[in-house]
Amino acid sequence: MALETLTSEPRESRVAALLRRSERFRLGLLLFPGLFWLLLFFALPLVVVVLYSFATPGPTGRVEWHFTLANYGTLFTESLYVNAYLRSIWAGVLTTLICLLAGYPLALYIVRRPPRWRTVLLFLILIPFWTNFLVRTYAWMIILSNNGIINSIIQALGLPRVALYPSEGAVLIGLIYGNLPFMVLPIFASLDRFDFTLLEAAADLGADQTRAFLRVMLPLTMPGIAAGSVLVFIPTVGQFVVSDLLGGAKVDYLGNLLQRLFTRSNPPNWPLGSAMAIVFMAVLTVAILLYFRITTEQDR
């Protein structure tokens, strides 16, 4: 018997090794397509952008491969680009803030409703979340247009017509409209996990409503606020559709310049556009890290 276990043991471990190898083979098989696709069609393109950002723009729009830092220099010295960054970040901050102020109470109300109402209300938030951004922006063009609904009401009141769009105000409305669902859903998720009896406990301990909200509910729902803010802030800073449709060609946001440098301007300037995209990503990363630091510090 002792001999038997001795002889069978190496055979078993060989089987185990074979199994382990087939296990690893299976993992490789499962992993390969996703890894391949994302490396080739996501990571590599970003590397190409970095390469372009150090190349020289040729006179006809063709890229010349001479190393230069001039593209980055242009971004930080020409007011057109500096202003576009500042304007876009400002629009992002404003939109995020307003969406938060409008979205938090909305999410709170939905959470406190009985289940059936909750489902209906949540569904009403989900529909715009799933519908085409372009179409929803276009709807505002109809409403704000010179002969549109709002101007008809203004005229009916005996007041002169107002040019509501294209304007920066119209852009802000479009941005808030397009992004509100992205703020409501994560906040709803974190409020859903929040134990509302904690508010009663805070009240029993003598805290008034404001204090209970600021010291108990707000810190505990901070993850939802942070997630919602990031989901609103990032696409807002990089957008170009809303400002293109509702802002006219008068003011340049970051996204409009990027779009023009890559697809429209005569000639196109990919190296400058690439540098602009890289700086944009750097600014975003810093902003988000700062934001998370602030929100988690409040948590402590």
Binding site: F41, F42, L44, P45, L46, V48, V49, Y52, V230, I234, P235, V237, G238, Q239, F240, G255, L258, Q259, F262, T263, W270, G273, S274, A277, F280, M281, L284
Partner: peptide, 14 residues
Amino acid sequence: VIPEIVMALALLAF
């Protein structure tokens, strides 16, 4: 999480 326009222009460049 990446801004869509960055992914878009990266793909065009690529």
